[in-house]
Design a protein around this nucleic acid. Sequence first.
DNA 1: CATGCAAAGTGAACAGCGTTCTCGTTTAGG
DNA 2: CCTAAACGAGAACGCTGTTCACTTTGCATG
Lengths: 236, 236
Amino acid sequence: MATNWREKRRASAVAEIKEVARELLVKGGPAAISLRAISREVGMTPSALYRYFPNLEALVAGLRSDLFKELGEATTKARDSVPDGDPLLRIMAMARAFRAWGLDHRAEFGLMLGPPPQSGEDGPDPDEPDYAPACVGVTFLAEIAELERRGGLRVPSVELIEGRLAPGLRDYLDGQEGLDLPVVFAFLAVWARLYGIIAMEIFGHMAWAVTDSGALFETELINFAQQLSGAEYSGS
Amino acid sequence: MATNWREKRRASAVAEIKEVARELLVKGGPAAISLRAISREVGMTPSALYRYFPNLEALVAGLRSDLFKELGEATTKARDSVPDGDPLLRIMAMARAFRAWGLDHRAEFGLMLGPPPQSGEDGPDPDEPDYAPACVGVTFLAEIAELERRGGLRVPSVELIEGRLAPGLRDYLDGQEGLDLPVVFAFLAVWARLYGIIAMEIFGHMAWAVTDSGALFETELINFAQQLSGAEYSGS
DNA sequence: CATGCAAAGTGAACAGCGTTCTCGTTTAGG
DNA sequence: CCTAAACGAGAACGCTGTTCACTTTGCATG
């Protein structure tokens, strides 16, 4: 009880540290996140930061987790802005929010969805329940499941994906309620496609071929909305 | 003439330096590429490396350029392994080679196609003729153009992309021979989609949802081959 | 109420980093 | 031959992450 104040103080210190780290990231790129620069900014000695994080990598990991949460909130907010009943429109709204957030936070996006620092090793354990990257993806997954529940999902050649793809899908997805194979496959396709066009634009790997990348995104968006549903879909 | 030997020596030194840098990258991740570690490995003092590169960033840029060339050779080799006459099969072979190279060289892939070090600024000038990332992409572009020339390209809703997307395409693509709007759009779609599924797998952002990512890739590959051509395509 | 314990913060130290400067040596060309 | 450029060594500066010993602060329990 009384120790509550101390815990609050600690929590606010942790929040301020990560906030400063984010500012440094935005201002100077990933290499600018330095323990000493953070300590200077928050008015502490470098060693004092070790009371809050075991090392710099853990600090960055904490920041990344926060960022995923922020991105997840942005997409779910976009989803809720569309009245329930049209999963396809919701998916498109979420996709637009995803891209918009990334464009507004390029450095953060690179930290979250770029290559891991050690390319050999994977990031955090995907099996823990609050695995951050999944939190954004499952929102799309849920909406695609809803789309299928309403009979609006066109499943691409089930006999083809059956058998080859089925064993590879993770167990907790197989055992989930309302998630059959076509839904998961459709989600993976949409998710990877979305990541591709957005990450490529944000990372600057598209600039050599296209200038108005917003128009390309919109075109691609309604393009795979058509593919997903099989319906003609020309609205914004 | 006589200075030829000196130039050769210099060129081999540059090559060895970049080779060592690559080994460090593979072994310890991008942060392991340090000027001092390279100097130790090649038996020079750190300052001596400045005779060959103005700074570390330029050294890495040179390495990245080499890597793009290597990737480009891998994809064109895969293309040439398929007998001329079937652009769709060639595209699929190139896509498989692209993914295979990336999986065999994860760290290099991250250096090449991850986020730029300074997220605000773009990388090298896209307008110079030997802009490396384009060298890989144009191979796909050329094959899609060939596919259209043979009448095998199904163009998705031209009236939709017309007008919105057309002004955004770069001038040198508009003025190119044999490249009309549908070809460029189809290329961009394929390119982004390919990048998405491959980068997502290599960066480890897919592991939480799928284990056998090879099966997913194959399924997606023939899936957008169908979409590209409109034909049924079930062969491997 | 007092004592003890844990958290919080300081400052010095170490090794490694990129970069710059000065200096000597080697080599190519007029 | 001799001058000038190329090459390399070595020291130095300021930056980095991390560790360690030490002091101060606040909380809870005997």
